[in-house]
Amino acid sequence: MAEVINGQPLTPTEYINHHLTSNKFPHESLNSFLQVNVDILFFSTVLGLLFIVLFYVASRKASSGVPGKFQCAVEILFDFINTNVKDIFHGKSRLIAPLAMTIFVWIFLMNLMDLIPVDLLPHLANVLFGISYLRVVPTADINVPLALALGVFILIIFYSIKIKGLGGYLKELAFHPFNHKALIPVNLIFGLIELIAKPISLSMRLFGNMFAGEVVFILIAGLIPYYLQFMGSLPWALFHILVITIQAFVFMMLTVVYLAQAHEKH
């Protein structure tokens, strides 16, 4: 499909690049050191607020009698996540289970945006507001998975020091895996590599899968008019539902695993 932006038709290459370009502030032409992907920030914030509102409504309408369909869905999800957290995390914390729930639902909602026809929201934004660039899948932008992973990284450091004390944590880094003073430099190198690898692996796994899925949808959309994209991308979308759910689940479970390790004393 040769999409037209500001009166100019796009070649297939320009079409792909156009959909992989975020709406930045300040604009790229200003060569600013610090830029904000406005569209990614907007959609991630809106979806986060949507999660808060939905679960607040579910909590306010919860009853001990026969639950409604929405309450049943929330309770099933809560029991599922709570069971998985208890199987992995054996410490005492009032944060881990709610954090796991938040991570799973928020990432799932952001991933779910990938199922919207590629040209639908960008076309509407261009017609209604004159916006030329619009990316709607926050987790397909490396900034969002990396920010989430850095948040987990900070919690790992926080709980490691809280549970073990600063001295105990530094001693763990210095004497693990080799319990000998002569090998402290080697242990520190291994420990730092392991520590840094956690947020990198978390963010790159989520980003890689969602970016690849977005590219496939764009390639499909490039061959079909926007008003028929739903039918053209339906087979891939049905498979991608499994992908977006698994990626949210994996990110949540690895977060719980890393925080469980931070609570362990060696």
Rank of each mutant, 00 (worst) to 15 (best):
S93M: 02
E14M: 08
T13H: 12
N187W: 02
V243P: 01
N6I: 01
K171Q: 07
R135N: 05
A2R: 06
P98S: 07
S233Q: 11
I5K: 14
Y133W: 03
S32P: 06
L128H: 09
N143Y: 14
P138N: 11
T83S: 15
S160A: 15
S203E: 03
H176C: 11
A140F: 03
E264D: 13
P145D: 00
L234H: 06
I193E: 10
N179Q: 12
F153T: 10
A221F: 00
L170A: 00
A174T: 07
G232Y: 02
F190C: 09
F70D: 03
F25W: 15
A149T: 04
L202T: 06
L47H: 00
F211M: 13
N179S: 12
Y15W: 04
F230D: 01
N187D: 04
V250D: 04
V118K: 00
K198W: 01
R60C: 09
N23Y: 14
L170E: 00
V215E: 07
G68R: 05
L30C: 13
G130S: 06
A62N: 12
L202S: 05
L254A: 12
V38K: 12
Y15T: 05
L219K: 06
V250P: 07
P177E: 07
A97W: 03
T83H: 12
F55T: 13
V250Q: 04
I154D: 11
L173R: 10
H18K: 03
M210W: 01
N143K: 14
M252F: 07
P145C: 02
N84T: 06
H176I: 10
I193N: 06
D141M: 01
T13Y: 09
F25L: 15
F190I: 12
K92A: 14
V46F: 05
Y159R: 08
H90S: 14
